[in-house]
Computed example of a mutant assay.
Amino acid sequence: MTIDLRKTAIAALAALSLVPAAAAPAHALGKKDKAFIAGAATAAVAGVVMQNMRANGQWPFGQQQPRYAAPPAQPQYYVQPRATYATTAPRQVTYQPRYVAPSVHSTPAAQAFRELSPQMRREVQISLARYGYYSGSIDGAWGPGTSAAVDAYARDSGRIGQLGSVAGAYGVMDSLGG
């Protein structure tokens, strides 16, 4: 192993010339300044030694510097299992009817209420509020509050059976002042 002293000296001088504090006396340098100069000189010397080792074929890692390369990751895919319908019996599908409660807007009482004039609708709501069945706004619109109030009034006055038809609902509305 031959160390080229000329190249080493040039590298050391170049490293020392980069530090402007190197021109100052040694006792004027702080602890960190001295450590920096020592590290720069060590790096320069080590770089020259490594170049010489590569040039002379003494580099233990071949001609290239060692580089880490992770193996390529294999993509992971989820494959959903397929059902084989040829070997299994067909599945029996049964549909059960679902009960859907009628809307408050599709009842005979709602139809009768909508056929009243706007003034008469408000009078029905005022009467329901006066009797304590309705606490919503007096707007003349049929909604869940008016529907519940009419049902409660008809139940308490014994006319709940009349709400099953439009004609009977008119009778309930008339008794309310509509």
Rank of each mutant, 00 (worst) to 15 (best):
A73L: 09
Q74M: 11
A86L: 04
P72M: 08
V45W: 04
G57Q: 01
N56W: 04
P66N: 06
A38I: 14
R67C: 02
M50W: 12
W59H: 08
G62K: 02
P72V: 08
V48L: 05
Q80P: 12
A46S: 15
Y85H: 02
R67G: 04
A43M: 04
V48S: 03
Q58Y: 08
Y85C: 03
V48M: 02
P75K: 10
V45G: 12
A46E: 08
A86K: 12
Q51E: 15
Y85E: 12
T87C: 00
P72W: 10
N52R: 14
A55H: 02
A55E: 15
A38S: 07
A55M: 03
Q80N: 11
A55D: 14
A73Q: 14
A69W: 00
T88E: 07
A70K: 11
P72T: 07
A73K: 07
Q76A: 12
V45F: 07
N56Q: 14
A38E: 13
P71F: 04
R67S: 13
T42G: 07
V49Q: 12
G47Q: 09
Q80E: 11
P81A: 12
G47V: 03
P75I: 06
W59N: 05
P81K: 12
A40R: 12
Y85L: 06
A38V: 13
Q65Y: 15
R67N: 04
Q74R: 11
Q76R: 05
A83N: 08
R67H: 11
A44G: 14
Y77R: 10
T42L: 14
V49G: 03
G47I: 01
A43N: 12
P66C: 03
P81Q: 08
Y68V: 03
T87N: 06
A43Y: 10
Y68I: 13
N56G: 10
Q64S: 15
Y77N: 06
G57W: 05
F61S: 02
T88A: 10
Y78C: 00
P66Q: 06
P71E: 14
G57S: 11
P75Y: 00
V45T: 13
Y77F: 09
A83E: 07
F61Y: 14
V45H: 05
Q63L: 06
G39W: 12
Q74W: 01
A69I: 08
T88D: 09
A70W: 00
Q51C: 07
Q65H: 07
R82L: 08
Y68T: 10
Y68C: 00
Q64V: 08
T88C: 05
M53V: 02
N56K: 14
T42W: 02
A40N: 03
R67E: 11
A40H: 04
A69P: 00
G47S: 11
R82I: 10
A83L: 15
A73F: 02
Q58M: 05
Y68L: 07
Q63V: 02
M50V: 15
A83V: 14
A44Y: 07
V49I: 15
Q80D: 11
R67Q: 13
Q74S: 05
Q74C: 02
W59A: 04
